[in-house]
Simulated assay, not measured.
Amino acid sequence: MKNTFDFHTKQGLYQHIEETLAFYYPQAIDDTYGGYHEGYHMDGTLTEETAKHIVGQSRHLYNFSVGFELTGKTAYKQAAEHGITFFQRMMRDQECGGYYTEMKDGSVTDDKKLTYGHAFIFRAAVAAVEAKIDGAEELLADIYQVLEEKFYEPSAKLYKDEATRNWSSFLEYRGQNCNMHICESAITAYETTGQQKYLDQAVSIADQVTNKLASQSEGLIWENYDKNWIKDEQFNHGQTRDEFRAYGFIGGHQFEWSKLLTWLYIHQQDSRLLARAEELYQIGWDHYHDPRNGGIFFAMNPDKLLIDEGKSYWVMAETLAASALLHGQTGNDVYREHYEELFQYVQKSFIDSVHGAWYQWLTANNGVEDEVKSPSPKSDYHPISASYLIASYRGEDL
């Protein structure tokens, strides 16, 4: 049974990570075109999807790097090295710099430069450095240089969202989502390298998004903005499940920012960070928690009315991490109780007890929505990264 691990202990959380990795390995490895496969049926067999997206590739690299860090298994080390080679030889734009968004069967199918994708290479590169994977240091140096020199917008102290291949023009759209993931990557870069610039960067991004931008929405995190960083309530109207630029107030992002602020507080004891983390968590719980069927609803409109009552795997993972970290920093048993409730719900409803890994979406009544368990770019990065973070900071005392 893949859903009976003890979520209170490091050993249990590490067991869950290994069981999740086992769903993807070894079939994730593409020995023909390089990189990783990104589509998996319910039993872990591959779908016919052959596209390789920058985000899915990054998440697999992260997962296998963590797998090697935890287990020392040579197979995971080789899997991570396989991913770094793919980024350096295939996905990197040797002429213009940066990394392509998508490839298929060895050819580039989308050559734009997506900040969200580069943010995830940043995250994966840091994990690979921590695990001492060959080539990781070079990948980290390159991706950080691209982010700072090409995407960073000094006037806003945030990052632009998308560029053409040769960087000649940028999308006028701005979004909080890619900035959130750069913030997370910077925290892990600080932990891994000890370089203060990364922590300063993470704190700055967090302040801009959770205070300055949120002031346009009565303290909630809205997703989409125009080129002047003014809230845009029409962009992607109704498209709550857009992978990178979702419409609405996304419940999971209130919790994810709560997690990040608490994580920052661990390193920089500024009471304002913790207070804002608790505020966002409470907003998330009050508006999105489903007391009847369990779990967390997905999205609200600008009037704070629920418009998507689906339940997403990544939202659950981020809420669990926020609950665990907040309990650790505040001692408030409410967060521990939420952690207990949500992990029991996840084990019962989200994790496939036979084959492992999490279902991507459940309905409001907890029915499985999809026929494919893991389409691109899912890869179960969120459950693995959340479990790893919880184990790192909470361990045996939850």
Rank of each mutant, 00 (worst) to 15 (best):
Q57S: 13
I182L: 10
W263A: 05
T193S: 10
K2C: 12
G219L: 12
A364Y: 10
A141E: 11
K150I: 01
K113G: 11
E256L: 05
Y335W: 14
Y152P: 11
A127N: 02
A131Y: 07
H118S: 09
W229F: 07
R272G: 04
Q27N: 11
G395V: 07
L306I: 03
C178G: 14
D242Q: 07
Y152H: 07
Y152V: 04
L213Q: 10
L264Q: 08
I54E: 05
L305H: 11
Q78S: 02
H118A: 04
K157S: 13
E256S: 08
Q15M: 09
I307A: 01
N365D: 15
C178P: 14
A391M: 02
Q269Y: 01
V354Y: 02
I283M: 08
G310I: 00
C183N: 11
G331P: 01
K227V: 00
A28R: 15
R276P: 14
K378S: 06
G98L: 05
T71M: 03
G238L: 07
G294F: 02
V372T: 12
M316Q: 15
Y100V: 04
H41F: 12
D134G: 00
T164A: 06
S215E: 11
V129H: 01
A189D: 01
T109G: 05
D31N: 15
A189E: 01
K10V: 02
I230K: 15
D286H: 11
E137I: 06
S107W: 09
G12R: 03
N301Y: 12
H53I: 03
E18D: 01
K311H: 08
Y100R: 04
D105W: 03
G39P: 09
A119G: 12
G106R: 09
T319Y: 03
G117W: 05
H267I: 04
E130A: 11
S387R: 00
A128F: 05
Y116S: 06
L362C: 06
Y381K: 03
G98W: 08
K259L: 09
E279W: 10
L273E: 02
A364V: 00
Q15K: 14
T32E: 13
K132E: 06
Q27P: 05
E371K: 10
L398W: 08
V126M: 06
Y33G: 03
I17K: 07
S323E: 04
P154L: 01
I182C: 05
